[in-house]
């Protein structure tokens, strides 16, 4: 009897310890922390060989999330997001252009709310405790099971679980993308006075909205098998800059990696493109079929964009 009780006690403690150190739980905690906590910080983002500093303020007020991000380097631009409504203010010549965006998945809120899809295509591992922006952090590494996606490294704040740093690297351990807080404060202030655009009254404010025709547009193409884990998360149909041409834009994601697939009729006089190219760390693959230009773009391996382009048929 004593032996049985001892075994039961041991199994309880071992399962409890495992639950606390399950690395997938860190991903879920990080997702919740980014949505529910109030934080204010400065971060540095590197992409396409450029490093920019940004200021971010996030607050949860009632059931709504409020975010303001403004660039600290170069041309002034900012983002204001309330729930699902996101507005971007960008300076262009003497105007401030206001654009409405449907969604955003910006650092630090880059981790998905469910890990079920990630578990199919990534292995997870924990590194040694590190220090970022003056705060101790748990290191989590997501390693792909195949060659269709990159490695993701996250430094999660030990106290709050907020991602403090993210590095994306390829299979040769080359840096693809890096974003990191240099300073962050987590607070419980119930103040939203910061949630307003920095209006410059000397400039003209122009609203730039793209009409989406996706609700009335049939899908005239077929998709064969795509790499495992990728799911369609968005479909938009917009007017191209060429008259009478509609641009079909599909977005696929596995929860971390994402890519765009464009299907567009080739206007008269324009030569369609075929083959693959690279801009910075973004891969592009193009194919011409039955009068349509099919193009896949993404911060994913070349193999992935080629696979998506080849999966389209008419």
């Amino acid at each position: 009897m004593t032996q049985r009780f001892f075994l039961l006690l041991l199994s309880f403690f071992s399962s409890n310890v495992f639950a606390q150190t399950d690395p997938w739980q860190f991903i879920l905690d990080a997702h919740q922390a980014c949505r529910n906590l109030n934080y204010h910080g400065v971060l540095q983002a590197e992409h396409l060989q450029e490093i920019r500093s940004l200021e971010i303020i996030h607050a949860k007020h009632g059931e709504q999330e409020y975010t303001r991000i403004n660039t600290l380097d170069g041309t002034p631009s900012e983002l204001l997001s309330q729930g699902n409504a996101t507005f971007v203010y960008g300076t262009k010549q003497d105007n401030v252009v206001i654009q409405k965006r449907n969604q955003h998945r910006l650092f630090p809120a880059v981790l998905p709310k469910s890990t079920s899809n990630l578990k199919k295509v990534y292995q997870i591992d924990m590194g040694k405790v590190d220090r970022v922006a003056g705060r101790p952090a748990n290191v989590i590494i997501l390693m792909p099971n195949d060659e269709y996606r990159y490695f993701y490294h996250f430094w999660l704040d030990k106290e709050t679980s907020i991602p403090l740093k993210m590095i994306v690297s390829d299979h040769s351990n080359q840096l693809i993308e890096q974003t990191s807080f240099t300073k962050v404060n987590v607070n419980s202030e119930d103040d939203l006075s910061w949630f307003k655009p920095d209006i410059d009254l000397s400039k003209e404010y122009v609203m730039h909205e793209e009409e989406d025709f996706s609700a009335n547009t049939p899908r005239f193409w077929k998709m064969a098998t795509i790499p495992e884990g990728f799911e369609e998360i968005s479909f938009r149909v917009t007017r191209s800059s060429v008259p009478n041409v509609l641009n079909h834009h599909l977005i696929y994601s596995d929860g971390l990696a994402s890519l765009s697939l464009f299907i567009q009729p080739v206007p008269k006089g324009q030569k369609p493109k075929q083959g693959s190219a690279k801009v910075g760390n973004t891969n592009i693959s193009a194919k011409y079929m039955k009068g349509y230009q099919v193009m896949a773009v993404g911060s994913v391996p070349q193999k992935t964009v080629e696979s998506f382009v080849n999966s389209v048929s008419f």
Binding site: Y89, N102, F107, M166, V279, S299
Partner: peptide, 18 residues
């Protein structure tokens, strides 16, 4: 094409807003 891609998928806020 590049602009539309980054405007909807970027995790880098600098790219997203600019």
């Amino acid at each position: 094409i590049m602009q539309a891609h980054f405007a909807h998928t970027a995790t880098n806020a600098s790219y997203f807003v600019q």
